[in-house]
Write a protein that binds this DNA or RNA. Structure first.
Length: 262
DNA sequence: GATGACCTGTGA
DNA sequence: TCACAGGTCATC
């Protein structure tokens, strides 16, 4: 599910409700969910009796800093993860994921000494918990990447523009839907090689990427894009009525307009 | 870079 | 039963 907009909504909930509260108990029932060398035991001892002091986000990655120079807890929502604090969860229900709350889907959580709780619910188990994530794994957040950075990136790549925009090490935060919406709004064919974009293309792409993130963020998530109405097999472009093309690009199902995306 | 793997739920 | 899902990783 979640792209940077959903991660940001989760971050706001964490920022509003999870900071400064003493962690009494850590629930890590699923060892498989704890990644990159960390173990449930390590996470338990790192968090117990500490407090979160900041809730940050890079792209789709959530970062919770601990007090007393403790490690940073990394939370990733994967394809179907949601953060729930004291029973409150952020944002709209997910489009392609279930929104029921089966207790078995709580892959990780903490109980605060005031009685509240924080849970990461993830039916598909593709999310992750880790300690001290290497923050150099990610490029600049899509909301902050500058035009000149983008230009330099594209000039050096023959990858399809869509694949490059979704490469989290280059630009963090754009997923399948946000990328398709951005390219649809810009009028660029997602299969075009990155370096084929002209100076003007890059300028428009940069501007559109930022407005798309802002607009869809206000509307409530990655699924609120204008191209979504044509995102069905055999669908028509909501802008000009031409056919929408459905294909795989960068390994992901991609929709684009045969007429205005060139 | 494209591909398949990871995992599990949903709907046709 | 199958195809598909808003993500990421290892592997050729």
């Amino acid at each position: 599910m979640p792209e940077m907009l959903e991660a940001e909504m989760a971050r706001v909930v964490l920022d509003d409700r999870a900071l400064g509260r003493q962690i009494a108990k850590v629930h890590a029932p699923d060892a498989w969910f704890v990644k990159r060398g960390a173990t449930p035991t390590m996470v338990r001892s790192a968090l117990r009796n500490h407090r979160f002091v900041a809730a940050r986000r890079i792209g789709k990655q959530l970062l919770l800093d601990l007090d007393h120079d403790g490690p940073t807890l990394g939370l990733h929502l994967g394809m179907s993860g949601r953060v729930i604090v004291d029973g409150v969860e952020a944002g709209d229900p997910l489009l392609y994921a279930t929104n029921r709350d089966d207790p078995a889907w709580r892959r990780f959580g903490v109980t605060f000494s005031d009685g509240g709780s924080l849970w990461l619910r993830d039916p598909r188990r593709l999310g992750a918990v880790e300690l001290d994530p290497d923050e150099t794994r990610w490029g600049p957040d899509a909301s902050e990447a500058t035009r000149s950075y983008l230009a330099g990136l594209l000039a050096n790549s023959s990858a399809p523009i869509k694949a490059l925009l979704m490469d989290q090490s280059k630009i963090a935060g754009l997923g399948n839907l946000l990328t398709d919406e951005t390219l649809w709004r810009t009028g660029i064919d997602p299969a075009r090689s990155a370096r084929s974009l002209t100076r003007d293309d890059v300028a428009r792409l940069h501007r559109t990427m930022r407005t798309t993130v802002r607009t869809l963020g206000r509307r409530g998530g990655s699924h609120t894009g204008d191209h979504m109405a044509g995102r069905v097999p055999g669908g028509a472009c909501p802008r000009d009525g031409a056919a929408m093309l459905r294909r795989q690009i960068g390994g992901r199902t991609t929709y684009s307009c045969v007429l205005h995306q060139r």
